[in-house]
Nucleic acid binder design. Structure first.
Lengths: 160, 160
DNA sequence: AGATAATGATTACAGATCAGAACGATTGTC
DNA sequence: GACAATCGTTCTGATCTGTAATCATTATCT
């Protein structure tokens, strides 16, 4: 069953899994640099998108989706609230929990964020034709689904 | 110029760049869990592979390729040396620099590491046929090359 | 109803991790 | 032969991290 070592070695370093990790780190870093112009970090952008998709969720659930402990979520949300991008409202049904919403300014910033994201997408896939770009997206989506990843959610963030 | 917001939104969260970041983080984490059985972290595995590819390099250059400052490389190499996997030899041409090499045990561990890497590759791409797997690899390699990434080198590591 | 357990947000804290400056040893330059 | 530059290393201060304790509120159980 074992091919020779040369084959195995090139498989590991040039295989799809390694390329995914390498390109993923690269894409994440490039995206972080882009949105730095909006004074946002990737996890902050992630929260804004999550709030746009499903508003009014509790901090605990949001923290879990972002892959951070609830204790760390507090100062994280504090800053965004201090900048007037998100809003904590008391949940009338359960006054322990805070329901998070985007403010008007948050919605505006999210619009800019989407433009930056589109530019990022174009830049990362500059090597591909339109057809290949679609092809790649389809393949990646299939892999992501089979691996059990939640669409639109990017855990494993490191705060900054 | 602007498509409607629905389109932009799905582009950003389901686009290739986002999927790359998401899948990259996933693949990296899964790989980290796998090689934990060998008592290795991803940056440690990266160093072993780099030493197998080009032995005898200086610590400074290795540190740069791994994306870590030289000061942090010292305890990093210390542990691997303490476990008898790598070896520091004095460079006779320049006695300031240390040339790093794999030991015999390091070579043995690297062989196991390749098996784990191959299993990881199979697992991550379980959703794809052989043809699609090849297709994906080709596309990723093209993107990686155009983005200026060095083959086989994975910076942006976080130590652990 | 009343005591008790469980949950959400927050704070406190202690340990790990980080990058940059400072330091000897060695080498290149003038 | 003095002076600057480089490599590895150590030191240090700041930052980041997750766990545990805390307070308010809600669910559960008798």
């Amino acid at each position: 069953m074992s091919t020779n070592q040369q084959t195995d070695r090139s498989r590991n370093q040039g295989g799809a899994a390694f390329l995914l990790a390498q390109l993923g780190a690269h894409a994440a870093r490039a995206f972080a640099e882009r949105i730095a112009s909006l004074d946002l970090t990737p996890p902050q952008a992630g929260l804004l998108r999550m709030l746009a998709a499903t508003p009014g969720r509790s901090q605990r659930r949001l923290a879990e989706d972002l892959g951070m402990p609830p204790s760390r979520f507090v100062p994280f949300a504090d800053e965004l609230e201090g900048r007037g991008l998100i809003e904590r409202r008391k949940n009338p049904d359960d006054r322990r929990s805070h329901a998070l919403y985007l403010t008007e300014r948050g919605v505006e910033l999210l619009a800019e964020l989407r433009e930056v994201g589109a530019a990022h997408e174009r830049d990362v896939c500059a090597a591909l034709s339109s057809d290949e770009h679609r092809q790649l997206t389809v393949l990646l989506r299939r892999v992501a689904e089979q691996q059990g990843l939640t669409p639109g959610v990017h855990p494993g963030y490191r705060s900054s």
